[in-house]
Amino acid sequence: MSSLTTIGFDADDTLWQNEQFFRLTERRFAELLADYAEPGHLVERLLAAERKNLAAYGFGIKGFTLSMIETAIEVTEGRAPASVIQAILETGREMLSHPVETLPHVRETLEALAGDYRLVMITKGDLFDQERKLAASGLGELFDAVEIVSDKKPDTYSRIFSRHGDGPERAMMVGNSLKSDVLPALDAGGWGVFVPHELTWVLEHAEEPANHPRFRKIAHLGELAEQVAAVD
């Protein structure tokens, strides 16, 4: 039997664009509150609110929108106009309906691997939003399973790769986040393939485990099949 039987794929900024919409919304947020704080300060305050609220709201656009509202109230000392709060809510709704733009080499890579390996999409974030993006991407039929989780930890990968495969030791996780996609998959005993994206949320940054025997890094998904073949 093949040594590798299951391949997991992150979704946001691995299969399709995502972070760019957050950056655009941050700029719009800074414009809305330009009379109250400098853009750099606003972004710092917003990041602090996001970090604090992760445990309560989780990952995704809805939590981001609530953190923007909280930050707006704080920096204006409770004087944020209703029109500003309404505009923030509108930006959140716009994010939840943005078009899905798949990244280069995604479809052909999935098609090349499907059938020979069990493909599992493993993503965190808002359930409805991730389901919407998967449907709009047209990639759903290429996956054997889809897992939308609240966070990604070693036991998350152990559970998922045992449920949909032959355990983490015979699985590979592919994604753009070292912190969420690669490091916990390695800790679970699997392979971790890092596919850097030009935009990565600061809370997803981590050091590359360059000396780990199961760590791989590729420039884009078009290079994945070669790595998979080398592992097998």
Results as ranks from 00 to 15, higher is better:
Val149Arg: 09
Asp10Phe: 01
Trp201Leu: 10
His105Asp: 12
Asp166Ser: 12
Val120Gln: 09
His41Trp: 14
Lys217Asn: 08
Thr71His: 05
Ala55Met: 11
Pro168Gly: 02
Phe161Trp: 01
His205Met: 09
Leu224Arg: 13
Leu47Ser: 13
Leu42Val: 08
Arg118Ser: 11
Asn53Gln: 12
Asp144Lys: 04
Tyr36Pro: 08
Ala87Trp: 04
Ala55Asn: 11
Glu77Val: 13
Met68Leu: 08
Glu44Gln: 15
Val231Ala: 14
Leu142Cys: 05
Phe22Tyr: 15
Lys153Ser: 12
Leu127Asn: 14
Ala188Leu: 03
Pro104Ser: 06
Glu31Leu: 11
Phe9Asp: 05
Ala230Asn: 10
Trp201Val: 04
Lys124Phe: 01
Leu15Pro: 07
Thr102Val: 15
Thr14Tyr: 01
Lys153Thr: 15
Ile85Trp: 00
Pro196Phe: 01
Phe9His: 05
Arg107Asn: 03
Leu47Gly: 04
Ala219Asn: 14
Trp16Asn: 08
Arg214Asp: 00
Arg170Phe: 00
Gly40Lys: 13
Thr25Arg: 11
Asp144Pro: 02
Pro213Ala: 00
Thr76Met: 05
Ala49Met: 07
Asp187Cys: 00
Arg159Ser: 10
His205Lys: 11
Asp232Val: 10
His212Cys: 03
Ala112Gln: 12
Leu113Lys: 10
Met95Leu: 11
Gly222Arg: 10
Ala225Val: 14
Arg170Met: 02
Ala185Trp: 00
Glu207Pro: 02
Arg79Phe: 03
Arg93Asn: 11
Pro213Lys: 06
Glu44Arg: 15
Glu74Trp: 06
Leu134Val: 08
Leu221Ser: 10
Leu199Val: 12
Met95Tyr: 06
Lys179Val: 06
Asn176Lys: 02
Pro104Asn: 07
Thr25Gln: 07
Pro168Arg: 07
Gly167Val: 03
His220Tyr: 07
Thr102Asn: 07
Phe161Ala: 00
Pro196Gly: 07
Tyr117Thr: 09
Asn176Phe: 01
Val228Glu: 05
Asn211Met: 10
Gly165His: 04
Phe128His: 12
Arg170Ile: 00
Met172Val: 14
Asp35Gly: 01
Gly115Thr: 09
Gly140Ser: 10
Met121Thr: 13
Thr71Leu: 03
Gly167Ile: 04
Phe128Arg: 14
Ala145Asp: 11
Glu111Met: 06
Pro168Thr: 09
Ile85Gly: 00
Tyr157Asp: 04
Gly125Ala: 07
Ala11Phe: 09
Ala225Cys: 09
Ala37Gly: 05
Leu139Ala: 04
Val202Asp: 13
Arg107Phe: 02
Glu38Gly: 14
Glu19Asn: 08
Asp181Lys: 07
Gln130Asp: 03
Thr200Glu: 15
Gly165Ile: 06
Glu38Asp: 14
Asp116Glu: 15
Arg132Gly: 07
Gly40Ile: 08
Lys124Ile: 02
Val193Phe: 00
Thr91Asp: 13
Asn53Val: 02
Leu46Trp: 12
Val228Thr: 11
Tyr157Asn: 03
Glu77Pro: 03
Gly115Arg: 11
Gly58Val: 07
Ala145Thr: 05
Ala210Asp: 13
Pro39Ser: 06
Glu131Ala: 09
Arg132Phe: 01
Arg23Cys: 08
